[in-house]
Design a protein around this nucleic acid. Structure first.
Lengths: 173, 173
DNA sequence: CGGACCATGTAAGTCGTTACATGATTGC
DNA sequence: GCAATCATGTAACGACTTACATGGTCCG
């Protein structure tokens, strides 16, 4: 999976601008994929050149013009090829776990700080996704599956962090 | 967190070769960080040039020579600087979730295939980590915390996958 | 005698990120 | 008046991965 596959996936569902795509990603897949504008815009250019998508300039009053991208037949085929290709392994890179792993070379307070930082993030994630879930009760089946996964995962992470914090507090006492 | 920080962390604990470091990573932090030889060896060279580590060539009989790397005082300081720097956010990139997200553009069988592929991986992860846990009962505290996290996470993933598989089977029936 | 393990390295390519650059409107 | 939102883009750089290259020992 790369940025191109993801963009194709969104454009299969409806035409969008680079800006739209970024917004979409942020409030739907951000907890398992993210991309910057610096990745999205060049990708769109490349894909247009490769005839996977077509640009349609939309004039707007009081706003800058938009480049609305529409997927082509070739683009749809490329997306299908991605969906038919072998599954790529999940990538995880956790600075928190790495630091805990080397935790004996720091003081316990720092570990608690890290855990608290991460706890807030997990809580924010949980709140945000729960809100999305409430806001769109008729969400498409598959999108809902991943959303619920995100919620479950945030709860799992939160639970783990809280248990660790409690343990560290007890040991410190 | 980058490869250099991680290498420094290992070398703080004891001198190692590039090969050792790779082995270590594979059976301790591989479920939240991984690196290839193509990343490790160049990093070691760079770090030696930067005086963070020193090379000691070890002659061996019947085996190729080893480059054993020892951390310097400067290296230890660099590691401490890393441990004192702000925590970096966890990075997750899940092809499985992305494909499920776009799952309505494929057939249900494919989704079950993906889930089964991932289930086997999670099971292998769980078995492997459980074995490590059993094998080293006196593991250093912090390393054990991350190991137990890995075990819990694998169980969580496994549970989720199994629930989804059951749901899909029921709906398909 | 073949595969697994030990051991190190480079070159080319991929795929991004960060920072910079621009500029209008809307709401507080 | 200032921040946020809308909207697009580039240049420099970073941080890898993959494939290639080499070669010895140990075990079944």
């Amino acid at each position: 999976m790369n940025i191109q596959n993801v963009i194709l996936g969104f454009l299969v569902e409806k035409p969008m601008t680079g800006y739209d795509i970024k917004q979409m990603m942020e409030n739907s897949v951000s907890y398992f994929f993210d991309a910057s504008y610096g990745a999205i815009y060049p990708a769109l250019k490349r894909m247009e050149k490769d005839k996977l998508i077509e640009k349609e300039v939309v004039q707007q009053e009081g706003k800058p013009n938009k480049n609305l991208y529409v997927i082509t037949l070739e683009g749809k085929k490329a997306f299908q090829a991605y969906m038919d290709s072998p599954l790529n392994p999940t990538l995880i890179r956790s600075d928190l776990l790495m630091r805990i792993f080397f935790g004996r070379h720091t003081n316990p307070n720092k570990i608690m700080e890290w855990l608290n930082t991460e706890k807030e993030k997990a809580q924010a994630q949980l709140d945000n996704l729960s809100l999305v879930d409430k806001k769109y009760p008729d969400m498409e089946r598959h999108k809902k599956i991943t959303l619920l996964y995100g919620i479950d995962e945030a709860k799992f992470t939160l639970g783990w962090i809280e248990r660790e914090l409690r343990r560290l507090a007890e040991e410190g006492a």
